[in-house]
Design a binder for these strands. Structure first.
Length: 668
DNA sequence: GCCGGCTCATCGAG
DNA sequence: CCTCGATGAGCCGG
């Protein structure tokens, strides 16, 4: 086995601990609180309002329920927290609007197309209308024309937040089969109509704010950030006005893989022209040199750059596709050949312009590692969990000779000391089989404020003060969708040596926003007992603290979707009982996640055992889409002055190397 | 206004 | 369970 470790998956204890992991995450010392004058103050607002203008009625961990150790779950959220989006639900009941609109499809003979369309619109028009009224795009006209990184990220975050919320609403509808779920299109429609988009100006070459390697999960996303403005067609082009007869040039293409255009060389793409496909009422035909095909031909002659987006299958969500922006290509040649149908098709050979960061090439490599067709030269261990997780975790080092992090025991979950005795009797839901999103009788859904916390494919809809999963006393099966944390992570992780921050964590799989990353495993430190023993966990670099100050924790709450969320606000979050988890001796992959001041991962409290919120699990979720091989980081938070006995906030302070423009400089 | 497009989700067969 | 293909609604832009 690699690394000469002889099949022992736990790294030998012989490593010098001091050499490793000198990096620990951050907890800054300088709490950055917004001045009262610049923007909304934070948090401590009564949940029933009145709300200061500009502040969103969402209460991460504060407010009355946060200060009680045993909150009344029946009060959680539902009545006390305004839920703007939910209130948009077009048909409160089983709905005329819906039936009418669907019914009208069947009556096509008597109704004109336009009537049909109108009826369709009404299905969610009420929602859209309210959203439009409240939706503050916050994007100026010039920003709509030309974007930047921040705008691109914001647009994508808003789109996906809206999409997840709409998915949640659809999931909860009575399952009349036949209702097609198109939350992505609805979200896209709202975004486009409200002008929440950027880079609308068509351009050749680089799109400001979109980076090579960026990933997308819907065609609509490409459209919203101006990378490829066709929602379905694979070739986007622009008309050159000062040219005779409206000459057109290709701007970007999306390769979906449907036409067997995959080449062995990741820098080469053979792309098929558009048109000529057989459809319901049409035979296959020869492709014509018009539209996109003509544009590609002209781009070949002019040798202009063409953006290439590669569509690949999403390993985590089988039926879905991921789109990878692979940078600029030039068209080298074109020809015509007979396709499978026997009709003529155009073919274009595109070659990647050298010197650009690897994107699709990385995907191809990962594909080969997964299939075992090639092994990673830098692999130390194929699975450092020794099979404790359902997916292996690779251990690699491409930086130096170190053979692994210091010894620790791999444990996939958090352990509470005996001193945390459960006091309350257990009760759970009575759902048979699995809990259904629309079932208002399910007590677990009630605990979650009436909403199913995850979408049907296991994506977190929005951050909340607490998520209540089904537990051991529930009657539902293990495969209930409300047991996401308990089923373990699905992402193929890799623990790797960073250049300057010890070991880190990254993923082979592309991760979409809201994906469950992993739990923070380790041993819960009993503060009282620890103090008696002469320590309080502060001395521990492998410790997770819930009671620090965190930025932008309002991940995708309704108000953020609606544009009011301010990620610049630092908020304090009180969870029922502050928790310290040490992963020094035992832990899982989470112990390798480094700090960043602009993280791509955040944490969320979840409870499912004992009906006792003192028994928390800390679950990590993706804040945004994360391309493969990108380091996963979260915000270690800002230490409160009362965190240490001595009030010595300098204690354990480390220089932050996250490199983010918003870096606070230090962390703990 | 119409219609085409390297879509997307669902369903059912194997 | 899967994975695959067929199916049909869907909407922007040309």
């Amino acid at each position: 086995m690699e690394g000469g470790l002889g099949g022992n998956t736990v790294p030998p204890n012989s490593c010098d601990k001091s050499k490793v992991l000198d990096v620990k995450p951050l907890r800054t010392l300088i709490p950055i609180f917004p001045e009262a004058s610049d923007g909304p103050p934070f948090v401590c607002v009564p949940p029933n309002g009145p709300f200061p203008s500009g502040f969103s009625p969402f209460f991460p961990f504060s407010g009355p329920q946060g200060s009680r150790s045993t909150p009344d779950i029946n009060q959680n959220g539902f009545n006390s927290t305004p839920l703007p989006i939910r209130s948009f639900r077009a048909e409160p009941s089983t709905s005329n609007g819906q039936n009418v609109s669907y019914g009208s499809h069947k009556l096509k003979s008597t109704r004109s197309r336009s009537v049909k369309k109108k009826a369709k619109r009404s299905k969610y028009s009420e929602f859209a209308l309210t959203a439009l009224t409240n939706f503050n795009p916050g994007i100026s006209l010039s920003e709509r024309d030309d974007g930047n990184r921040e705008l691109v990220e914001n647009v994508l975050l808003k789109f996906d937040a809206l999409r997840r919320k709409l998915s949640q609403m659809e999931d909860a509808k009575e399952s009349h089969s036949g209702i097609v779920k198109r939350a992505n299109l609805k979200a896209g429609n709202i975004m486009l109509s409200k002008g929440v988009r950027t880079n609308m100006k068509k351009r050749i070459g680089v799109v400001p704010g979109v980076e090579i390697g960026d990933i997308f999960f819907f065609r609509m996303e490409l459209c919203l950030v101006g990378l490829h403005s066709q929602t379905m067609a694979g070739i986007d082009y622009m008309v050159i006005k000062d040219d005779l007869e409206g000459e057109r040039l290709a701007l970007s293409i999306v390769s979906s893989g449907r036409y067997d255009d995959d080449a062995e060389d990741p820098d080469v793409l053979v792309y098929s022209g558009q048109g000529g496909n057989a459809s319901r009422d049409k035979e296959a035909s020869d492709q014509k040199l018009v539209r996109g095909n003509l544009a590609l031909e002209r781009s070949l002659q002019r040798a202009n750059e063409v953006r290439v987006i590669r569509g690949v299958k999403d390993d985590l969500h089988q039926s879905c596709k991921v789109y990878v922006y692979d940078g600029l290509y030039k068209i080298q040649e074109s020809w015509m050949e007979k396709g499978k149908s026997g009709c003529n098709m155009f073919k274009y050979k595109l070659v990647r312009i050298p010197g650009q960061t690897d994107a699709f090439a990385t995907w191809k490599s990962i594909q080969k590692w997964k299939e075992g067709l090639s092994s990673r030269a830098v692999l130390i261990l194929p699975d450092l969990t020794s099979g404790a997780e359902s997916t292996p975790v690779s251990l690699v080092n491409e930086v130096d000779d170190e053979k692994g992090p210091p010894h620790f025991t791999y444990s996939s979950t958090v352990k509470y000391p005996k001193s945390f005795k459960l006091v309350q009797p257990s009760f759970g839901c009575n759902c048979l089989d699995t809990c259904q999103a629309g079932n208002s009788n399910c007590s677990c859904i009630q605990k979650n404020g009436g909403d199913f916390p995850y979408t049907a494919n296991g994506i977190l809809v929005c951050g909340k003060p607490m998520i209540y999963e089904c537990g051991p006393s529930c009657l539902c099966f293990r495969n209930c969708k409300n047991r996401l944390l308990q089923t373990g992570f699905k992402v193929h992780f890799e623990v790797f040596k960073t250049k300057d921050r010890g070991w880190g964590l990254r993923s082979w799989d592309p991760i979409r926003a809201g994906t469950f990353i992993c739990e923070y495993a380790g041993e819960v430190i009993d503060k009282i007992k620890a103090r008696q023993d002469g320590g309080d966990g502060e001395n521990n670099e492998y410790a997770f603290h819930t009671n620090r100050l965190y930025e932008s924790f309002k991940w995708n709450c309704e108000t953020e979707v609606l544009g009011e969320g301010s990620s610049d606000t630092t908020e304090c979050f009180d969870i029922p009982s502050p928790l310290i988890i040490s992963s020094e001796n035992s832990g899982n992959v989470a112990r390798f996640m480094n700090h960043s001041c602009s993280p791509n991962v955040f944490w969320q409290p979840i409870t499912y055992e004992h009906n006792n919120e003192a028994f928390l699990h800390i679950a990590f979720f993706a804040k945004r889409h994360i391309p493969p091989m990108t380091e996963l980081t979260y915000d270690y938070g800002i230490r409160r002055s009362d965190e240490t006995e001595s009030n010595n906030v300098e204690y354990g302070r480390k220089k932050c190397l996250c490199g983010s423009p918003k870096c606070r400089g230090y962390f703990y």
